[in-house]
């Protein structure tokens, strides 16, 4: 812990630093059972890395929340910039914009609404409602012919 990089790392990410968001620093502080996270032990190693870096319990610090707020602002800026160059994306524009909106949606729900740190049943309840809403949304657009190809006028 002597070198400045280690110190900075510890200050940013560890529980005893009073900075950034707080990682559990001992095994006992991790959720029990260990599959408390949305995917448990399944998935590639990178997921465990993400898991470690986003699980802070309800003891995340104001700095952590501020970083999340900055990310949300940056994503909004990116959205508006993409809007100004929508011709560049062509038919992918709508997909890209929806993915960006979904990313912001998930960030707010996971961190600001604490679903990432709360019991999984709450995630299930909200996801169920959201998926039903998406289902109704798609059905409604389909019934109204929004996904049908545009009719062509005969020459």
């Amino acid at each position: 812990m002597a070198n400045p990089i280690s110190r900075a790392w510890r200050k940013l990410f560890y529980q005893d630093s009073g900075s950034y968001f707080l990682l559990p620093k001992v095994d006992a502080a991790y959720p029990d059972p260990p599959n408390e996270g949305p995917f448990g032990e399944a998935g590639p190693p990178v997921w465990h890395w993400i898991d470690r870096f986003t699980y802070g319990g309800k003891v995340a610090t104001p700095f952590f929340y501020t970083i999340i707020g900055v990310w949300l602002a940056l994503l909004t800026l990116v959205e508006v910039y993409f809007f100004t160059i929508d011709d560049f994306f062509g038919s992918f524009f709508v997909t890209i914009m929806l993915l960006l909106a979904l990313l912001k949606f998930v960030i707010v729900v996971a961190f600001f609404m604490h679903l990432r740190f709360d019991k999984n049943i709450l995630t299930l309840v909200f996801t169920a409602g959201f998926l039903i809403a998406i289902f109704v949304f798609v059905i409604m657009l389909s019934v109204q012919g929004q996904f049908a190809p545009s009719p062509q006028i005969a020459p």
């Binding site: 309840v125 809403a133 109704v136 657009l141 109204q144 929004q146």
Partner: peptide, 23 residues
């Protein structure tokens, strides 16, 4: 738990309005 159920149901409320707008 009730608040989360309410928010989940509100998704349907706004989802319907957004779909109507798009139509």
């Amino acid at each position: 738990l009730l608040m989360w159920v309410f928010l989940a149901s509100d998704c349907l409320f706004f989802g319907s309005f957004i779909a109507t707008y798009l139509v």
